[in-house]
Simulated scan of single mutants.
Amino acid sequence: MSITLNIALIQTDLYWEDPVGNREMFEQKTASIPDDVDVIILPEMFTTGFTMKPENINSTEGHKTVEWMLQKAKEKDAAIIGSIISQEENNFYNRLWFVQPDGGMSTYDKRHTFTLAGEDKVYSRGEKKIIEYFRGFSFYPLICYDLRFPVWSRNAENYDVLIYVANWPKKRIDAWDTLLKARAIENMAYCVGVNRIGKDGLDFEYPGHSAVYDVLGEPLAFSENEDILYATLSKDHIESNRKKLRFLEDRDQFSLIG
């Protein structure tokens, strides 16, 4: 019997720079998710929106949000994934948290900070990938602008699921759609993109387009509305297609420097 995994993507508007309001909103949304869901994925900076003013957020809010994620993961018996503002001494990070129901946690700091918005001047960039294992699947989680850089997304580890959490604006949404599908095809992995909707505090508009693609680039879920999207991932789908189409075996071998 093939291993399967049920995932939920929460596509929603966000309250600008309001961690308390956003946690309350996601509390309500996660409560409606069925008990058979294994993984719940939230957008980038899901408690604040994509703000370049992290000093406006109380420094205790990051810890409160992680505690909330731990609580929800245990209650829902599901992994919770999303990025928030995290602070270490005088440095701010756009940090993704992968929280499991047994209390296990791992973090990824956004590698490609978005220079067009000045993110590189506000948030320190990350240097390390993480591959997380959960219920028979391996996950490679990334953040928004990382999507534009295929070398960083490259499937050198034979991961099963590539995840992007994002605040991707309407004016460049065609790139989001195209690159999500391309990342699935070139890496022969499920590719999951979770974007927000609505307008942020700087009046940038976000159209959603959260989606799930299988290893052949076929869409399993897509929405432009405030919505919770669902998809079932199959280990057999990954293994059978990689066995039949041995594209990953022909990868160029190289290492990243710097």
Rank of each mutant, 00 (worst) to 15 (best):
E27Q: 15
T30I: 15
S32L: 14
S32F: 11
P34F: 10
D36E: 07
V39M: 03
I41K: 06
L42R: 11
P43S: 13
E44I: 02
F46W: 15
G49N: 03
M52K: 12
M52I: 14
M52E: 08
E55Y: 07
I57Q: 07
N58R: 05
T60K: 10
T65K: 09
E67P: 01
Q71W: 11
A73H: 14
K74H: 12
E75F: 06
K76M: 06
A78G: 06
I81C: 04
I81Q: 04
S83M: 04
I84F: 12
S86F: 05
Q87V: 05
Q87W: 03
E88F: 14
E89Q: 05
N91V: 13
F92A: 00
F92Y: 15
N94I: 08
N94E: 12
F98N: 03
V99E: 06
Q100D: 01
Q100W: 00
M105E: 09
S106K: 09
D109L: 02
H112L: 11
H112Y: 14
T113G: 00
L116D: 14
Y123G: 05
R125D: 02
E127S: 09
E132Y: 00
F134C: 01
F134A: 08
F134D: 05
F134V: 06
R135P: 01
R135T: 04
R135Y: 01
F137D: 02
F139K: 01
